[in-house]
Write a protein that binds this DNA or RNA. Structure first.
Length: 430
RNA sequence: GGAGAGUUGGCCGAGUGGUUGAUGGCACCGGUCUUGAAAACCGGCAUACCUUAACGGGUAUCGGGGGUUCGAAUCCCUCACUCUCCGCCA
């Protein structure tokens, strides 16, 4: 979330940035100014009463110490207590309303973010690779996967339901090979430290990265006896929250972490599009990249993080383009986002395979992640960044579609051969 | 699952109802000394919010929440977590 003082002092700027996002400032900010000033009045009123009570208590202590009678003062203070409770109730209510408004304000787009009204206005900043040429009609991955016997959506329905998948044999191995390959590249070549976090987290963690309170309906919840946990929708949640409520040493920054986890997303209402194949699943696996950075470095770090994700696509020989999301298409918490879109010949489209964002201090403020700049006693919020490096499920299908052959088999990209042990996937029945 | 012991500032660690926002140490910042550094010595050093033009004043915070009391780090309840022992288990 944004800083209260910043919002109060820069209201016109906040409104302008909200409009850039395609939002109506009046709807987002509601009666911010009114609630803010009422809250301050209420706080002043209660605190004046409290100060009065504290002075009286001190008086009582002195009287008692010198052996004098204090019953008059005690009676008076008793009365004060009721007044305080009443006033305090109002200020707590107003505080809650203000927090709710503040929590509902999205991050402000960075000045380098292209202005726009929809995804149509996203800007292509670069393109890599050449889409493969086929002397036959390339098939979509759901046909290829079924024919090869490596992707089984029917049995997944039997086991669990729609939007889940079963991978067989070299299909399962390809998923595992991709994860290992990505983690190896990021840890060996890009300086990331591998982390294996829990796949279930508590509500505080979901608040820390902003999934709660607004997006509960996109999540899977696990209630068991007294426990109330959530399945992670992305490794961003547990990994960013590793440093929740901590103060990091300045010399450790930037901290770069990578994690391979399943991701669970309920995403009610996003059906209709992408119903075929495994583009949009309730469970998919992803290698995530997370950075904690000094504020002044964070945009350099965003470029590095995006580059690291792009390198995976390059090593796999998958054509892609890098899009700078426009102001209207960015996520709630992001100040700037690059999407990587991989070419899918079976569908003749570019599809998102990675999303790399700088959240500046938006998440850090919420999750209370700070650092102490050298030579200063005061702590500051770090900037947090993350990106997919990459979504393994979508990389899987991109390989199937881009490396398909006229006989229906799929070649294994050079970089993956050591991980696969074979250089081609051919049809099998299971 | 059972029994017990804990949780205090960036870190360590005192403190069991009344100037304790909290002794002390480490770390950090400034200074003295030094050619420079180290050591030593002196001083400073929590956070958030309200208020003030400013100086300053005020409120809250000792794991979270609630309670007792004129007054709570200190007493009570509750939840979470950590540690030790027992049980169970891959």
């Amino acid at each position: 979330m944004l800083d209260l003082n910043f919002v109060r002092d820069n209201l016109p700027l906040v409104e302008e940035k909200l409009r850039l996002r395609g939002m109506n400032p009046a709807e987002v900010l509601k009666d911010f100014g009114e609630v803010d000033s009422q809250r301050r009045q209420a706080i002043t009123a209660t605190e004046t009463l409290k100060a009065q009570r504290n002075r009286a208590s001190e008086e009582i202590a002195k009287l008692k110490k010198s052996g004098q009678d204090a019953s008059a003062q005690i009676a008076e203070t008793k009365d004060l207590r009721e007044q305080i409770q009443e006033k305090e109730k109002t200020s707590i209510e107003l505080e809650a309303r203000l927090q709710e408004i503040l929590a509902g304000i999205p991050n402000l787009p960075h000045s380098s973010v292209p202005a726009g009204k929809s995804a149509e206005d996203n800007v292509e900043v670069r393109r890599w690779g050449t889409p493969p040429k086929f002397d036959f009609a390339p098939k979509p991955h759901w046909e290829l996967g079924e024919q090869l016997g490596i992707l089984d959506l029917e049995r997944a329905v039997k086991l669990t339901g729609g939007r889940f998948a079963v991978y067989w044999d070299l299909g399962a191995k390809l998923e595992r090979a991709l994860a290992n390959f990505m983690l190896d590249v990021h840890t060996r070549e890009h300086g990331y430290t591998e982390v294996l976090p829990p796949y279930l987290v508590n509500s505080a963690s979901m608040y820390g990265t902003g999934q709660l309170p607004k997006f509960a309906s996109d999540l899977f919840r696990v209630l068991h006896g007294e426990t109330d946990l959530w399945l992670v929708p992305t490794a961003e949640v547990p990994v960013t929250n590793l440093y929740r409520d901590e103060v990091l040493d300045a010399e450790r920054l930037p901290v770069s972490l990578t994690a391979y986890t399943p991701c669970f997303r309920s995403e009610a209402g996003s059906y209709g599009k992408d119903v075929r194949g495994i583009i949009r699943q309730h469970q998919f696996q992803k290698v995530e990249l997370v950075k904690f950075s000094r504020p002044e470095d964070s945009y350099d770090q965003l470029e590095k993080l995006t580059q690291a994700a792009e390198e995976i696509l390059q090593k796999l020989g998958l054509p892609y383009r890098t899009m700078a999301l426009c102001s209207a298409d960015m996520g709630f918490s992001s100040a700037k986002t690059y999407d990587l879109e991989v070419w899918l010949p079976g569908q003749q489209v570019f599809r998102e395979i990675s999303s790399c964002s700088n959240f500046e201090s938006f998440q850090a403020r919420r999750a209370n992640i700070r650092y102490r700049p050298e030579g200063k006693n005061k702590t500051e919020f770090v900037h947090t960044l993350n990106g997919s490096g990459l979504a393994v499920g979508r990389t899987w299908l991109a390989i199937i579609e881009n490396y398909q052959q006229s006989d229906g088999s799929v070649l294994i990209p050079e970089a993956l051969k050591p991980y696969m042990g074979v250089d081609r996937i051919t049809a099998k029945k299971f």
